[in-house]
Amino acid sequence: GTLHLNGVTVKVPSLEKAIKAAKKFAKKYNLEVQVHGNTVHVH
Rank of each mutant, 00 (worst) to 15 (best):
P13C: 14
V8S: 05
K27T: 07
N30L: 07
H43P: 01
K20A: 13
V40Q: 04
K27I: 07
A26H: 01
Y29K: 00
T39E: 14
P13L: 11
H36I: 14
G37K: 05
P13R: 10
H36T: 13
Y29V: 05
H41T: 13
G37N: 06
T2N: 06
K24F: 10
A22L: 15
G37H: 06
A21Q: 07
K23D: 02
T39K: 08
Q34M: 12
K28C: 15
V10D: 02
K20I: 12
A22K: 00
K17G: 09
H43L: 13
H36F: 11
T2I: 15
T9V: 15
K24M: 09
A18K: 01
K20C: 15
K11I: 11
L3T: 03
K27G: 04
K27C: 07
H43T: 12
L15C: 00
G37L: 06
T9C: 15
P13M: 09
L31M: 11
A18W: 09
T9Q: 09
K11N: 10
N30Y: 10
K24G: 03
A26V: 04
V10T: 06
A21F: 13
N6L: 15
H41V: 14
L15M: 08
N38L: 07
E16P: 05
A21H: 07
G1P: 14
T2H: 11
G1C: 14
Y29A: 03
K23C: 11
K20Y: 08
L5P: 02
V35L: 05
H36P: 02
A22H: 00
V10E: 04
A26K: 04
V35G: 02
L5D: 02
H36K: 09
L3D: 01
G37W: 07
N38E: 06
F25T: 01
K17L: 14
K27R: 08
Q34N: 06
V8W: 14
G37D: 05
L5F: 15
K17R: 09
S14P: 03
H4T: 11
G7V: 10
Q34S: 13
G37A: 05
K17D: 12
V10S: 05
L31E: 00
T2E: 08
G1V: 15
A26G: 04
N30Q: 06
Y29C: 05
H4E: 06
V33K: 00
V35W: 08
A21I: 15
L5G: 02
I19V: 07
N38T: 10
G1Y: 15
V35H: 02
K17V: 13
P13W: 12
V8Y: 13
V33N: 00
V35D: 01
H41D: 05
N6T: 06
K27D: 08
N30G: 14
N30M: 08
L15Y: 05
A22M: 12
V12N: 02
V40H: 03
H41L: 13
N30V: 07
V10C: 13
L3V: 08
S14Y: 06
Q34W: 14
A26E: 01
L31Q: 04
V12D: 01
T9S: 10
H4V: 15
I19T: 03
V8M: 11
Y29L: 05
L3K: 02
V42T: 03
V8Q: 06
L31H: 02
V12G: 03
I19N: 01
G37E: 04
L3E: 01
V33I: 14
N6H: 13
V8N: 06
F25V: 05
K24E: 11
A26P: 00
A21K: 10
L5A: 05
K17F: 13
F25L: 11
V35P: 03
F25I: 10
E16N: 08
H4F: 10
V33F: 12
T9L: 14
A18V: 06
K11H: 12
I19D: 00
V40A: 04
A18G: 03
H4Q: 08
H41P: 03
G7S: 08
Q34C: 14
K20Q: 12
L3I: 12
Y29T: 01
G1R: 02
V40P: 02
A21V: 12
T9P: 07
T2Q: 08
V8K: 11
S14R: 06
H43R: 09
K28N: 03
L31R: 00
P13Q: 13
K17Q: 12
H4A: 05
T39H: 15
K24I: 09
V35F: 07
V10H: 09
Q34R: 12
K11Q: 10
K11A: 11
I19A: 00
N38F: 12
N30K: 08
K11S: 10
A18E: 01
K11E: 10
V12I: 08
N6K: 06
H41R: 10
V35N: 00
Q34T: 14
K28L: 10
N6V: 11
H41F: 14
H41Y: 15
P13D: 13
K27H: 06
A22P: 00
K23H: 09
I19H: 00
E16T: 09
V40F: 02
G1M: 11
H41S: 15
V33Y: 06
L15A: 02
V8T: 08
S14F: 08
H36D: 11
N38R: 03
G7F: 10
L31V: 10
L5M: 12
H41Q: 11
T9M: 12
Q34G: 04
H43Q: 08
H4W: 11
A18I: 07
V42N: 03
N30F: 09
A18D: 00
N38V: 08
L5Y: 15
V40M: 05
L31T: 03
A22Q: 00
H41N: 08
K27N: 06
V35C: 14
H36W: 07
T2W: 15
V42L: 13
P13A: 13
E16G: 10
Y29W: 10
F25P: 00
T9I: 15
F25K: 03
A26I: 07
V12R: 03
V33Q: 02
V33H: 00
G1F: 15
N38K: 04
A21N: 04
I19S: 01
K24V: 06
L15E: 00
L31C: 09
H4I: 15
K20W: 08
V10M: 13
V40D: 02
